[in-house]
Design a protein around this nucleic acid. Structure first.
Lengths: 336, 336
DNA sequence: GTGAAAGCGCTAACAG
DNA sequence: CTGTTAGCGCTTTCAC
């Protein structure tokens, strides 16, 4: 039963017959491939548009192995849709996808059950790869081309990486703090499952070493972006352990908020400057211009990932560009 | 060239050989179809999971005409991702899709160029169908099953409809206003391109007729949800034309905001009650408990659309449920 | 109950 | 330059 819900579509064969050529020729003519007279090409094209022919993507995909769809993977995508960062990243992917005529498919991220069917995509973008995300790992081990949107944490298979230039941005922020004088800097960042967290630590420590001061740090769970209570707990410990702390870099504006509240409520009299390595998407720092932050370009990052993936897909079986992350610049709001 | 980027996947043939059966039998065994010994079924299933077999969706899709992907259409989806309503709707679709093992594909909504290839989806959800959306019309005329997420405006082809029960919700809101006394009610709602706008007018007028009062209304562009200036202009005209107005129902909280500001700034002394037929997603009415509004269940609506579409898809070529919209209840915040 | 074979619509070889 | 042919991996008759 040929499925009556999908009534007869115009097939390439129909176009070919109508145009008086063979299917092979018609195929070549429409795809601009091969060695075809301008005249026959025109003829075929005319008939095709007249009949309203659109290629059956399944059939051509079966033959070529391409689907013109890219997949997007993120843990719990449904909830992530509420987060501005993911949403903007997604918008960037969508925009580029549309420009290149690719559909974008949110991959089913069910970690329990294996997919009943392989994803019908040509390649995948993994947003914020975490080393304990099993489905991300699975995708990266699969034969599909994968582009990671953010630095890879250790333990995950290699793949192409497109990331924000955190190094430059954070250093700019730190330089501004340095001018104000820092003698005991603290860092609160995502733990080792996150490539971003690792990078922040590296940059922070290099800067501290340069400055000749002794840093200390605390960990938060990646994705606990707006988990003020979580931040508060970690920050309290850190501040109590280091009574001489005078500056703290935190991975989220909500961390800054938590820290400042803590100081006000529980440690009156102590003076600590704060800065955020993450963007102030919700505007919670809009009234504290003395706090600097990095403005992560989520949309540009998503767009860059998509560009990179599509470029790679269209490049054919070639090995692709040399490894090493593609960097997307971030802007910084300097502290007043 | 069989595309070296997609190295050899395990094929059904491999499973069949390994299990010592034919491909046909293996296919039946895995799909739970046909007349197969429990023993062979087990055998095949074991081999399949051992080899890590996942069906090639393209191939099976080519044969069956199904892809286990549903499409989502909305004008300018990229910008819509920033709107809580669309986002929540999307989340609902995604959630149900995942539960039924369907991927969700955002359809390329480029209105200029026709798709180079037919969408690889089994069916489509059209969010907020508008009569002047050409791609929506195209989809609804295509052989694909379509579910509309909200009432259809006149002029669009028929299709299944899943909508919020605005009638009940708005009546509840109006009843509450009625108790406070209304003698001259005004309505500001989307124009005739929107099925929702049409319904609002119908309900509003029926209520006014019942009450024995004379209503009046103004139009806004659908989608101008947070366009305060647009609202302000329309509301000003309406209020100036109807000096005796004492109540106004507006389609968005931002409209309420605009109206109240206008009153305060330009028409001091006039007393008009406001209510919103749309949800207060951004919380702009949180400090005016005297303003009631309808709380549209975007996520539930998205989920219901997906359920309905998938149900229809799995039901086979049958005509499906009788026409008439499926309704999703909305809750109401009554005015204080 | 199971195997063999046809064919979904298309592209890519290979002839001519 | 263009027609013919052979599959891509799967499901689905139809024999046995």
């Amino acid at each position: 039963m040929p499925d009556s819900r999908q009534p007869r579509r115009v097939r390439l064969k129909d176009v070919a017959e109508q145009a008086g050529v063979s299917v092979g020729t018609a195929s070549d003519a429409l795809s601009g491939r091969g060695r075809i007279t301008e005249e026959t090409r025109r003829k075929v094209a005319d008939v095709a548009s007249e009949l309203g022919y659109v290629a059956n993507a399944l059939a051509s995909g079966l033959r070529t192995g391409r689907t013109r769809t890219i997949g997007l993977h993120r843990q719990s995508p449904t909830e992530q849709l509420d987060k501005p960062y993911f949403r903007q990243f997604f918008a960037g992917v969508l925009e580029v996808g549309q420009r290149h005529d690719y559909d974008v498919s949110i991959l089913s991220a069910n970690t329990q059950v294996p997919r009943s069917t392989a994803p019908r995509v040509d390649g995948v973008i993994v947003v914020d790869p975490l080393s304990d995300d099993l489905r991300a790992r699975e995708l990266m081990l699969s034969p599909l081309p994968v582009v990671a949107g953010e630095y890879l944490p250790p333990g995950l298979p290699e793949c192409e990486v497109v990331a924000v230039d955190h190094r430059r941005a954070v250093n700019e922020l730190l330089a501004a703090e340095e001018e104000r004088g820092v003698s005991r800097p603290l860092l609160v960042a995502p733990d080792e499952h996150s490539g971003w967290g690792n990078l922040l630590r590296e940059v922070f420590e290099a800067w501290a070493a340069d400055l000749g001061v002794e840093p200390a740090h605390g960990y938060v769970r990646f994705g606990g972006w707006d988990d003020k209570d979580g931040f508060r707990q970690v920050i309290r410990q850190l501040l109590e352990a280091h009574g001489d702390a005078d500056f703290m870099l935190v991975s989220s504006p909500y961390g800054v908020l938590a820290g400042r509240e803590l100081l006000l409520e529980a440690m009156p009299g102590r003076e600590v400057r704060f800065a955020s390595a993450g963007p102030d998407v919700d505007g919670v720092l809009s009234e504290t211009p003395e706090v600097g932050y990095v403005d992560l370009p989520a949309r540009a990052l998503g767009a860059a990932c998509a560009e990179r993936l599509i470029e790679r897909l269209e490049a054919g079986p070639a090995p692709g560009r040399a490894p090493g992350a593609t960097l997307v610049p971030a802007s910084v709001r300097l502290p007043r």
